[in-house]
Design a protein around this nucleic acid. Sequence first.
DNA 1: CACTTGCCTGGAGTGCACTCCAAGGTCTTA
DNA 2: TAAGACCTTGGAGTGCACTCCAGGCAAGTG
Lengths: 156, 156
Amino acid sequence: MTVVQMVNQETVPAALCVAEDETHPRPDGRDQYTISEVAAFTGMSAHTLRWYERIGLMPHVDRSNTGQRRFSNRDLDWLAFVGKLRLTGMPVADMVTYAELVREGDRTQRERKALLEATRVDVVKRIAELQDTLTVLDYKIGTYAGAEQAPERTGA
Amino acid sequence: MTVVQMVNQETVPAALCVAEDETHPRPDGRDQYTISEVAAFTGMSAHTLRWYERIGLMPHVDRSNTGQRRFSNRDLDWLAFVGKLRLTGMPVADMVTYAELVREGDRTQRERKALLEATRVDVVKRIAELQDTLTVLDYKIGTYAGAEQAPERTGA
DNA sequence: CACTTGCCTGGAGTGCACTCCAAGGTCTTA
DNA sequence: TAAGACCTTGGAGTGCACTCCAGGCAAGTG
């Protein structure tokens, strides 16, 4: 069974790993993390995390009394969601737009929903493209497996 | 039996649009296309097509007696394959590597196959990631659909 | 014949998403 | 208390994949 079959939304991955509004307390039960801890959790670099805050993709992160960032579980959840959006190929600028809508409060819900739905459509399209690509790839791999002499665009 | 059916015993999109070694004569039955025609066929810009040739992602394209490019059906097939690889997110540099292997002839088959298989693994992973993202997206869209008051990270 | 359109070249410019730097403050362990 | 790890900032730099530009050649049209 190839991926092809799992693709349409029946088997939902057991770990719906994220939704920025549900707090997922991290292993150690704290609610304060340094930037390097967050980098480790999220797989994003500390540079990227600072940059995300600068461009407004993160709401302002709390600071310790000496000015160091202290990320909360909420921040971690948001970052996880951002990570998901990033996987879709959504431009960072669009994610910032979404973040701004969130900051504007409840009256932007309709807009946010529309944005997410548009993203959903994109994702479905990307998945279809990738499956298509998979088909081509499998075909080509098959030609290499099957024949000593794979027909290829070569001068030889 | 078309290529489509051998590939993956599954409903495969009717148009397995590509395999660079089988010539797909284009609608008008010619084997000579100007760069702008190719741009129209492939959706790539003429700039990109020239650039691909420059960096060695295209084998040298024939020229007319006045020096203009004349793409063949073979070229079109190759470009379609390149287009598929591009969709996978494979870096252009890697595609160039593949193109070089092709140019080196039959003794690189094993290597090419390995490259394609590695790509396949990536694609499968990407598909899984996207499906995961879809789950998250659906969950979030659901929260907007269900409640007037979607729980969101907002100050309001 | 002028004009427009389409193509050629090498090289420079663009936009995106980071990624790093310099200069400095803080924290921890010896 | 001193070394070394870790953090801060604004701004500059990087790598990728195009994308465009200037200057010029060639073919078709009124």
